[in-house]
Nucleic acid binder design. Sequence first.
DNA 1: ATGAAAGCGCTAACAC
DNA 2: GTGTTAGCGCTTTCAT
Lengths: 370, 370
Amino acid sequence: MVVWLTAGNVYNTQRGALVRVTITQVAAHAGVSVASASRALNGQAASAKTVAKVQHAAEELGYVADATAQSLKRGRTNQLAYAVADIGNPVYIEMMTAIERVVSASGYRLVMSSTGTSSSSVDVVRDLGRGYVDGMILSPLRVTDELLAVLAKAPVPVVVLGRLPDDASLDTVPADSFTAMRLVVEHLVAEGRGDIAFVNGPSDTTPGAFRRDGFAAAVVAHPAISARSVDADDFTITAGYAAARRALHDDHRPDAIVAANDLIGIGAIRAAEDLGLAVPGDITVTGVDNTELAGVIRPGLTSVDLGAEERGRVAAELLLARIAEPERPAHTVAVAPALVVRGSSHARSPNPAGTPDSEAPDLNNERPAR
Amino acid sequence: MVVWLTAGNVYNTQRGALVRVTITQVAAHAGVSVASASRALNGQAASAKTVAKVQHAAEELGYVADATAQSLKRGRTNQLAYAVADIGNPVYIEMMTAIERVVSASGYRLVMSSTGTSSSSVDVVRDLGRGYVDGMILSPLRVTDELLAVLAKAPVPVVVLGRLPDDASLDTVPADSFTAMRLVVEHLVAEGRGDIAFVNGPSDTTPGAFRRDGFAAAVVAHPAISARSVDADDFTITAGYAAARRALHDDHRPDAIVAANDLIGIGAIRAAEDLGLAVPGDITVTGVDNTELAGVIRPGLTSVDLGAEERGRVAAELLLARIAEPERPAHTVAVAPALVVRGSSHARSPNPAGTPDSEAPDLNNERPAR
DNA sequence: ATGAAAGCGCTAACAC
DNA sequence: GTGTTAGCGCTTTCAT
């Protein structure tokens, strides 16, 4: 027994399973062969009359081509993936939005898989072999040898949104952490700060390692600076708060906290305030990523924009280009960081009384010129 | 010419296309039939010797089963989708995280598609007919007749994370906006506020409509309250800021702003501050969703928790249950809202001098008991 | 321009 | 327990 539910594209068998209208039924309904139906539906050579008949039949039956069967036959899925470890960080959402805009304009569906929760980056890349996507953009938190090995023989193109060892010949859109940290340190020096606590994320992550090294390199250029470093457990507000408390618990207190990202920076502002320190009166705090949050909290968080949106867009374009031309040489595209000064630091040297500057709201979240 | 690249699972044809190792090659390598190979790989009846041979061959060749072919044959993709209109709102990320946890435990991959940017909810649901997922969870912003029609004949199960008309017999996990607004209004009354501006999101959205109506119903219960309402252009900080400026620009100023969600509420706090109003000294501000942001800004935003995480979890469970048993009756699961009081309002009546209460940081973002 | 038929990679009857 | 075979729904030669 078969019960038709609607004029739509499904009916119900006695087993309760939903069954779909196939191209065979469309062809029969139109009185043509399946080959003609397929051609008519895909805009291939077919007489106007055939096209009309087939389209009418498809319309009437509510036919929708099965993506799985098309994928199997065509050898591609029209689906791309963006895999990210830490979806709680708004900077990755920003990247995803930029990526989605580019790939959907090219007819691809974007699949977002959050590694971290259920599986590691390695698992995600390995899963690529299952062929459920035609390509992937990956923002890995940790680049292990195992990941590099899996990446090297990935069966579909992968673009890495982040930094890789130089000898990995893959398309990458790295963050320029060295320039970023240099901009921050120079800003602090101009402001008159000289005793800096660097609150990093985990040092064994790629961003953690490069921001630490970038900070160290920047500090070396200014012999007057004294600096220390602590690691937060991860790149979150909560972990940043805890790590900043540790950094501020010593007998002597720094006059600046440089956070490895905005979330840690926000946690650091809260920690300083809870210790009775005025920001930026007693202590300056800076972040990295220039997320919308940086402009929303008070005081606004001075932050380095690493170009998340542009990097996302570029990564998507690199992926599409590689899919179109698999043998093209690997590209690495750099995006210049830019410092955005807000109320958590002073533009020049600190006010004598520690009074915060008056501050216009930063709600439009504009990106600075570079 | 065929060039083997590695001992891995791909080799390169002269066309540059990547070709995959198939089960046929594994079977040949192991000296068994493809059927035996398939059985061995899938844990079906097979002798220990066969299993060993096949697994060894698969390992050696780097075989990974093709998801597309499996899907076509099995009639399911093992992929579920979460479609959301506004990925910039952290409450949806929170839901997604909860959903992902549940579905990945059941062996499904979660695909996140952000409607809004490239396509509408209707398009996304219609695309379901292409069979690229086995089911979907949808958080629609606007429930049109067209959407309901498409939903009614969706070829795969759909669970709606949001409110639907009562006669739509679908699995839903609505937000209880009426209770939410009642909790807020009662809190304001206890606080001694009586002149309320309601800053809604767009009224033509489902949450907008229900929060507006819920607010109206709550106000009616308190004749002493006078209330007005403005719509923000969307549920964002920026739009909330602009709308709150309008609400506060009148000749007479309210003593409370009730925002339809946290983002609008944060914008409202900024708007009040820019107008020289102390929060909560001169004016109370409240939000809805109890996102992490509410605990991060200063003053902390008093907010109603609509149970995003629990609702996401429940929606995922409903979807899995329906996939397992397609003919089961439609369920609607309600989650009780709970008010979380923070510094943007007073626990009781306002301090005479408008001095903000001292406030512990709300960084662990705990959910209140209900 | 159209139809018959092969086959993408896999699983599941079915026969042995 | 294992091999042979059919076929999921579609696109694409290859003849006609």
